[in-house]
C-alpha cells in the first residue's frame, strides 16, 4: 500500500512537471538580460517586461483582442441564452440536431472553421475584416455559452416558472425575474470561459486579420517570426497571470467542478 502510494505520488509529480515545466522555463527565461532567449539565465532583468509596453502593436492588438472578446461575448450571450433556454425547456422536433449544430464549432477543427469563415464572410459577402473578426469570435464563443448556461438550466426547476406565471407574472417578466437570477452564476461562468476561449484564439483570428487589424495572439506569432528576444516570454508570463486570475474568479464563483461534472 505504502509503495503504491509513493509510486502514485511520483507519477503525479511527473505529470505536473510535464505540464508545467515549459511554462516555468518560459517564466524564468523572461528575466534574461541578453537579446536571445537562454536557459540558464546569464543575469536578471525586467527590461523585456518594459519592452512589451513599448511595442505599440502589442498594445493596439491587446485592445482589439479585448474589444472583440467582450463584444463577441455580448453577441454570443444574446444568441446563446435564448438558444440554451429553448434547448433545455422546449421539446420540439430536430432538437438534437439543433443541439449538435450549436456545438459543432467545438468539434470542427478551428483551421477549417477559420478558412470557411474567410471564404464566406470576407470573400463572398464582402464584410469588413473587423466585423468578420467579431462574427468569427461570436461563433466560437457560442457553443461555450450554450453549453455552460444549458448545464445550469438543467438544474433549474421549471415548476418555479409555472409558479411565477400562476402568480400573475407575464412570460417575459418571469424570464427576467425568476429564470435569469437563478442561472446567474452559470451566465458569469459562461462569459468568463467564452472570454478566455476567444482571447486565446489563434486559428480563427489568423484568417480574420488584415492590414492594421489583428489580435494579440496573432501579433505574438508575427513577432516570434521576426525576433527571438525574451519579450514574448515576458508577455506570455503576463498572459498566464491574466488567465490565472480569470480561472481563480471562476473557481471562486462556482468551482471548477462545475465544468467537469457533465
Amino acid at each position: 500500500m505504502q509503495n503504491k502510494s509513493y509510486g502514485l505520488t511520483l507519477f503525479t509529480f511527473l505529470v505536473y512537471l510535464f505540464l508545467l515545466g515549459p511554462l516555468i522555463l518560459i517564466a524564468i527565461a523572461s528575466f534574461e538580460p541578453s537579446t536571445v532567449l537562454k536557459f540558464p539565465l546569464t543575469g536578471f532583468s525586467l527590461k523585456w517586461y518594459k519592452n512589451v509596453f513599448e511595442v505599440g502593436l502589442f498594445m493596439s492588438t491587446f485592445k482589439t483582442s479585448v474589444i472583440v472578446s467582450l463584444l463577441g461575448n455580448f453577441l454570443a450571450l444574446l444568441l446563446g441564452v435564448p438558444a440554451a433556454y429553448a434547448l433545455s425547456r422546449g421539446s420540439f422536433r430536430g432538437k438534437n440536431t439543433l443541439n449538435a449544430i450549436f456545438l459543432s464549432p467545438v468539434l470542427i477543427p478551428g483551421i477549417v472553421l477559420g478558412f470557411t469563415l474567410l471564404k464566406f464572410i470576407i470573400i463572398s459577402l464582402h464584410i469588413p475584416i473587423y466585423a468578420a473578426l467579431l462574427i468569427g469570435h461570436t461563433v466560437i464563443m457560442l457553443p461555450f455559452i450554450i453549453r455552460v448556461i444549458g448545464s445550469s438550466l438543467s438544474n433549474f426547476d421549471f415548476a418555479i416558472e409555472e409558479a411565477s406565471l400562476s402568480l400573475g407574472s407575464s412570460r417575459l417578466a418571469t424570464f427576467f425575474k425568476v429564470v435569469l437570477p437563478n442561472i446567474r452564476s452559470g451566465i458569469i461562468a459562461a462569459v468568463l470561459i467564452a472570454f478566455l476561449e476567444s482571447f486565446n484564439n489563434v486559428d480563427i483570428s489568423i484568417f480574420m486579420s488584415g492590414p492594421g487589424i489583428s489580435t494579440l495572439p496573432i501579433q505574438m506569432l508575427t513577432y516570434v517570426q521576426n525576433y527571438f528576444d525574451p519579450t514574448i516570454a515576458a508577455l506570455s508570463v503576463m498572459l498566464m497571470i491574466f488567465t490565472a486570475v480569470i480561472m481563480f474568479l471562476i473557481e471562486r464563483l462556482l468551482g471548477l467542478s462545475y465544468f467537469t461534472k457533465r
Partner: peptide, 19 residues
C-alpha cells in the same frame, strides 16, 4: 392565459423562488 386567471397554485415540488 394563466397569468390572467388569478388562481393560486401549490406544487408537489413546492416551487419556491430559491433566490
Amino acid at each position: 392565459p394563466i397569468n390572467k386567471r388569478n388562481f393560486g397554485l401549490v406544487f408537489q415540488s413546492y416551487a419556491l423562488f430559491p433566490h
